[in-house]
Design a binder for these strands. Structure first.
Lengths: 198, 198
DNA sequence: ACCCTTTCTATACAGTTGAATAGAAATAAT
DNA sequence: ATTATTTCTATTCAACTGTATAGAAAGGGT
């Protein structure tokens, strides 16, 4: 009854995600996007709502993948799971480790000028999600340690989020997915101390 | 003998710096740049070498101002001077504290795609300069403490640079020049410990 | 075979981009 | 006043932007 689509939607979003991740939103033209993703220009409009709509789908894809593959263990874990997450930021193979930094960081920096409400909500939601996972893990840890308060989960979680951003930017500016290692080590040592000295 | 320029060069570069800082490089058109800086389009080309040339001058201005006003005390100082610098990142009034983040961070993120050698060198130079100041201050501190090695100046300095980047990105994405406070507090506490427990 | 629906290719569109240039304007020296 | 030099204004330029659309292509149903 219908002509079949020439692309796989899932794969297309995945490709779009990688393309925006590497090149950013503004610098990536629709025609270049067409080639990098395999989606034809018509479909970008009719199926995704244009360039920004495609980025939004890419952001959702990125968020879901990050939550599932990287953040999830922290939800019922403690400091060891946070440390594993942080190490992933500078460990080849992890999806949160890239010489292009982080799609959410890059988009957030761009959107400070673009001021797109949709993009703002998408990036903000991601960092809220990450902070929640950090907070959960720290609260779990605190409970397991018997409540002797040596740190504030909320404060420490907020600091960790900024640190994650810093690692990503360092990786991107240096074109080296391990460039942020020094800060990761420092944060991991700090966390290990909080656990050991309970 | 000549028609006088309609703008003050120093003020113009300063304005360009602020404009690029807020809006970024790609998103800021030459015509908008004209209005924000008071420089006419002709002068942007003939005096600064076009849009990129103007950004390069703005980066130099930013770097010199940051070194003079913010980094300099660390050169002959120690951990207290580092703490003062870090606090400045989230303290209104300091030039390194802005809801637009950091011109060097923003430019670095953009240039990962633009791949301009000149911009790359300018931003890289800035972070090298900052890391050198951190390292110097930490070495000064170590010497003053009598050489009992409790930390590696080079490692700690590298971590501090990434942390600074993270604070800036946090400030920009939240449009709040104090948004990165939690990480600043954490790093300052860590530094204070290293000093106290000597 | 023919039709109907969906998707794709190719082109067109108005708006913007950074850069370039020609002529006007402003100054100082003569 | 006239001239020489520099700077500015206004316009032009080709290239590119994201979006829109018309007609071709590809299927399945009859």
């Amino acid at each position: 009854m219908v002509r079949p689509k020439s692309y796989d939607r899932q794969k297309a979003v995945e490709n779009a995600c990688l393309a925006f991740w590497e090149h950013g939103f503004q610098a990536l033209g629709v025609r270049e996007l067409e080639q990098q993703t395999g989606i034809n220009q018509f479909a970008i409009r009719s199926e995704f709502g244009g360039k920004e709509g495609l980025l939004l789908e890419a952001l959702n894809y990125y968020r879901d993948a990050a939550i599932t593959n990287e953040m999830a263990p922290m939800w019922d874990g403690g400091i060891p799971e946070i440390i594993t997450f942080l190490r992933g930021l500078v460990t080849p193979g992890s999806m949160t480790s890239s010489q292009f930094g982080c799609l959410m960081v890059n988009t957030g920096v761009e959107n400070a000028r673009l001021k797109s409400p949709a993009l703002g909500e998408a990036t903000r939601g991601y960092w809220t999600e990450l902070e929640s996972h950090f907070t959960r893990a720290l609260e779990n840890e605190l409970r397991a340690q018997g409540g002797k308060v040596r740190f504030s989960p909320a404060e420490l979680a907020a600091a960790l989020v900024s640190a994650v951003m810093g690692v990503h930017v360092q990786n991107r500016t240096q074109k080296d997915q391990t460039a942020g290692r020094a800060l990761v080590d420092l944060m991991c040592n700090r966390l290990a101390e909080l656990r050991a000295s309970s």
